[in-house]
Write a protein that binds this DNA or RNA. Structure first.
Lengths: 250, 250
DNA sequence: CGTCACTTTGAGGCTAGTCAACGGCGGTGG
DNA sequence: CCACCGCCGTTGACTAGCCTCAAAGTGACG
């Protein structure tokens, strides 16, 4: 490990880091001892911008777990004919790399959708920490379990309307910004790729939602006026957790 | 807990159980200490037959992890219009319930496809054991990770041919019986439901494979003569692990 | 002010779903 | 022993949802 400026900076306040971090839903959040311990193993944060080389690529040895601190990271695979298949969008607080833990090599590549920051937890240190803190290990399993449940739900053979509805609901929950404005960081092409829909289908379906008065669309983003109607469509996918973010205090 | 005959039987040789078990790919398999410790927490085995009440149902409190010892268990959800959505087929060695670990309640129901046996690990004991044996906790995370990777892969918008090919390849690997005969325990209706294909489409696609000489079909099951061709179709889903079971010794 | 990426709109085609009907097989009961 | 029934698998004809292809409109940025 070389000692460049970025590393030095990152290590000046190693334990204060996660405790001061504004990302509430981060995996690092937990009992204070766990959070500080997690902080202590972090390598310097990385900044990633769209167009930059991938954070990691398919087949790379998995040597770190990543958490998103800001922005949006997408993971994807490339099939034999060059087509890109987006496997997930990772927003602040999300872990990246959970689907590679058993294989030891990355099952996807990762790039930034918008300028982003990711925290890097070296895997060897993570494993040591998990041995010392069983409750942290349990939380990691639970995170993986949650991802699994979501992936299984998205697998279903659902209509374009249902898929897009589920996507909007899911994003609204995770991007909740204090108002009902939903600013999606990724282009419709990526949404379509992720949902296995053509870009045109995403656009048309969204327009349908607008024409039904469920969604308002302007330069700044989306407004989900018909949250309940959209959630009803999405219910088979996201489950019966149909309350909007601003009502999820409990 | 009442002390019926079955329980008494199961507890007579608690530690010998997993070590003597013929299921090689079981989660309980590992370093000897882990296997015996896992054995020690097991509740009596359950036998489940098709048509019997579910092993567990959506919304039940998750109080145990289950491993399949024999047969085939399917997990499924039921949407608001009564339609069944199969989420997974669990074969000997598989864990059931991994997608519920974070939620604490079952996200699916589970019934037997054929007469089956499942081992029951009470969750409270599992958690204690995981705290004491971090390497076991790591293996649990890895299992969950593997399931996640599979689910993400199956999510893709693939053609009927690709889906069925991936299903056959996946099943061949897990049901490997020493010969190249593949005896699927579930009816085509269930396969179609799982793959989000109509039963008729499963049948027609299978016939296509037969007509191409890739598959032989008789009363006893399937024979994958064109394993390589099928695996090539399935490659975007199952990944580049294209060797048949009987060549997977390494 | 031009370029480029993204979005939007339209027309036509294909995959897979739906509906309907038949054949085979196993179980059940007369 | 055979007739009946139900489930599963199979086949064909038709339909629908979504994809593909093509082209024009829109906003961001140099």
């Amino acid at each position: 490990m070389s000692m460049n400026t970025a590393q030095a900076d990152a290590r000046i306040q190693p334990q204060a880091d996660c405790l001061l971090c504004p990302v509430q839903s981060c995996f690092a959040r937990g009992p204070r001892a766990e959070t500080t311990a997690w902080s202590a193993i972090l390598a310097p944060r990385l900044s990633v911008i769209p167009g930059a080389p991938p954070l990691f690529a398919v087949g790379d040895k998995l040597d770190s777990l990543y958490t998103v601190r800001a922005g949006c990271i997408k993971t994807y695979t490339v099939d034999s004919s060059g087509g890109e298949h987006i496997r997930g969008f990772h927003l602040p607080g999300d872990l990246i790399g959970l689907d590679a833990l058993d294989y030891g090599r990355c099952r996807s590549s990762a790039v930034a959708v918008v300028p982003s920051q990711v925290c890097v937890a070296p895997l060897s240190a993570v494993r040591k920490l998990l041995s010392a803190q069983p409750s942290l290990a349990q939380r990691l399993t639970e995170r993986t379990s949650r991802e699994l449940a979501l992936a299984l739900a998205l697998c279903g053979g659902f209509s374009a309307e249902q898929r897009l509805a589920a996507f909007l609901i899911h994003m609204e929950r995770r991007l909740y910004s204090g108002n009902s404005l939903l600013r999606l960081p990724m282009p419709q092409r990526d949404i379509g790729n992720y949902l296995r829909l053509a870009t045109e289908t995403v656009c048309r379906t969204l327009k349908q939602f607008v024409s039904r008065g469920w969604v308002q669309q302007d330069h700044f983003g989306l407004r989900l006026d018909g949250y309940k109607a959209i959630a009803a469509l999405a219910e088979p996918i996201v489950g019966p957790l149909t309350a909007p973010s601003f009502a999820l205090a409990a």
